[in-house]
Structure formats: C-alpha cells, structure tokens
Amino acid sequence: MIEIKGLTKRFDKVVAVSNLNLSVRDGTVLGLVGSNGSGKSTLLRMLAGVFRGEEGAILLDGQELFDNPVAKGECFFIPDFPFFYNNSTIENTATLYRELYPHWSDEAYMRYCSVFPINTKNRIINMSKGMQRQAALILALSTCPRYIFLDEIFDGLDPVVRHLLKRILIEHVAEHQMTVIIASHNLRELEDLCDRICLMHRGSILMERDIDSLRLEFRKVQVAFREVPNVPNLFEGINAVSIWRNGNVFNVTIRGTEEEFMPKLNALQPAYISAMPLTLEEIFISEMGAAGYDTNSIV
C-alpha cells in the first residue's frame, strides 16, 4: 500500500506539490489527471524516489520510500521521455536490470520480447518514440514490479500496442495485485483502464474518486422550453456545475442523480428534457472550470 502524507515539493519559489495526502491500495489502477503543471509528473518522480519532498512522507508498506533500495526494488518508473544510454539495447539493458531488480524474470522477459514487435539488438535511441516506449515497457514488466508508475505512457503507441498494454496491465493487476499509477492527458484511455481517478490542480488534489461512482454522480442534461419561464435563478435548487444557453435550449451539467433533480426540472414544464452520463473528459472539464480553470478560453 502507498501512503502519501502531507507531501510538499518546491522548485525555488514554485510549489509543484502542496501538502498532498493520498492512499493507494494494492491492486489499484489509479489515473492521475489535471491541468498542465498540476504536479502529476513531479508526484510520479517522488513516488519513484527521484525527488525528495521538503515536507511530508511517502510510505511503501509502512516504510519510507526515499533512499530505501529494498522498497525501490519493488517499483519501476517510466517517465514521459525514457532515458537510455547511446549504446543501450534491450538486451544489454536487460543484463543490467537482471542484477539490479530482485524479482527480475527471464521467463517474463522472453514473453514480452515475443509479444512486442521490436528488435532487442537495435540501439534504443535510434528507435521511434513509440518503439522506445515499447522497449521501456519490456524492461519494466520483466522486473515484475509490485508498483509501476507511468507518465504519458500511451503517447506514441499505435492503437494495437495501446490495447495490448492495457490487457497486460490488467492481467498483472488481477494475477499479482500489482499497483499501477498512470499520469496521462488521454482520458479516453484511462477511462477503459483505471479503477480510480485523482484530479490534480496547482499541486493539490481536487478530487479522488472511484470511476464508476464518479460516472453516476454527474449528468449532462438538455432542457428545452417553448417559452423560457420568466423567473430569476431558473435552476435554483439544482446542483448545476455549469449552464450553457442557446436560445430556449439549456445544456446543464448537474452533480446528482436523476431521482434528485428530475422532479425539480419537470416542475419548470419544459417541452423536452434529456439526461445522459458524462464522459471522464467532460467531468474533467467541469471540475476544472469549477476550480477556476478558464476552459472557455481554450480553442
């Protein structure tokens, strides 16, 4: 289990992570989403032991993670831009990792070399972005980590490899209770894979929820009137996150169940009303707008 307690990280005067608290149970697939500069990548680097916070702590199974070789041997981190030496190949890097990681599996290594369409003898720096990520994944999964941290891992992967990666991660979680934390702007990919979502903004957590319950909590509702009621605060008493009007038609994002808000909307006697669940991307935009992020200015 990962426990993050009061974690703060600064770079000069910039606070990248601010008094962050988070617990991640074993066998969880957690998606980190948020605005640019929200602290996602910094948090992953701290989880990997690359950075140390000025305040707070990260505990892995109750032990401090930073400067703890035993705990780090249980983890693997693939950054947004994986680093390899000029002469690195998958084969010679595997020889190094075989000595560094206590759970290295030659059986897993042979399996992933056969599954991912990549030449293990070629220099990795000469490969495309997507192929470099595949090389990093082969090596990472062969260490059989209990905790794997992935930063924008889907970037550069073709649809077939993305599907393959998601299947492999789900298998590892189901069979070995591996914990996966993924930072990504590709919310559609996370929606298919993650159990929970953590929304970050300005170094803090705005929301951390189970995806299924999150889908049930929000609805996008279209309400059309023959004549708009001449009343102030038309949607008063309804927990509206956002309201957009086009003539007599209102598009309203509502936090709550249909049992809660439908009677109040029907009392307005609309000509037409329709409610649908939000996608993860729509929830992200709504929550960021509520946090003061100017989504309307983005074209």
Rank of each mutant, 00 (worst) to 15 (best):
F81N: 13
K220E: 10
A271S: 15
L164G: 09
L193F: 05
T279N: 09
Y97W: 14
E236L: 01
G247C: 02
F235C: 08
A94N: 08
S274L: 15
A267C: 07
V161K: 08
E208G: 03
H176E: 13
S128H: 05
V249F: 06
P82V: 09
S23Y: 08
T95V: 14
R219H: 15
P232G: 09
C194W: 01
F66C: 12
Y97S: 05
F218P: 01
V241F: 04
C75H: 09
G203A: 09
A183L: 06
N19K: 15
Y293P: 00
P69N: 11
V299T: 14
G203H: 03
C198S: 13
V17R: 02
K264G: 08
P263H: 03
F235K: 08
F225A: 14
L280N: 05
K13C: 00
T179I: 11
N68K: 09
A267G: 00
S204F: 04
V14W: 12
D155E: 12
L206K: 03
E3H: 11
R202Y: 01
V241C: 07
D80F: 00
L60W: 07
A290H: 02
A290R: 15
H172D: 06
K9E: 01
F83R: 11
N296H: 14
I148Y: 01
Y85A: 10
W244A: 15
L43N: 09
E54R: 00
N126A: 11
I285E: 04
E189Y: 05
G247T: 08
M1L: 06
R52I: 11
S286K: 11
K220C: 03
A267I: 08
E282W: 05
G130Y: 03
H172I: 04
S105N: 07
F83M: 12
P263E: 02
Y109G: 06
I181L: 12
M207E: 05
Q63I: 07
E175T: 13
G37A: 11
R215N: 02
H201Q: 13
E91L: 12
R188E: 07
D195T: 13
E287N: 11
N68L: 10
I238Q: 01
K13R: 11
E152F: 02
F11Y: 11
L60N: 01
V231M: 11
T279K: 07
V299F: 09
V161H: 01
E227T: 11
E191R: 08
I168G: 00
N251Y: 13
I283R: 04
R25S: 13
R123S: 07
P69S: 13
F250K: 08
F235H: 04
I2S: 07
G31A: 15
R167I: 06
C75G: 06
V33Y: 02
T28S: 13
E55D: 13
Q134T: 00
E54H: 02
G6A: 14
T295H: 12
T143G: 10
V221H: 00
E191F: 06
N36I: 04
G292T: 06
L96I: 15
V252G: 04
S286R: 12
I148K: 00
G203N: 02
N186G: 05
R123I: 12
V228L: 11
E99F: 04
F66H: 15
E189D: 10
K40N: 03
D294F: 03
S128P: 05
L30F: 12
P232I: 09
A140K: 02
E74M: 14
E107N: 11
I182T: 00
I168Y: 00
R167G: 05
N86R: 14
L32R: 04
E152I: 06
K9I: 13
A290G: 03
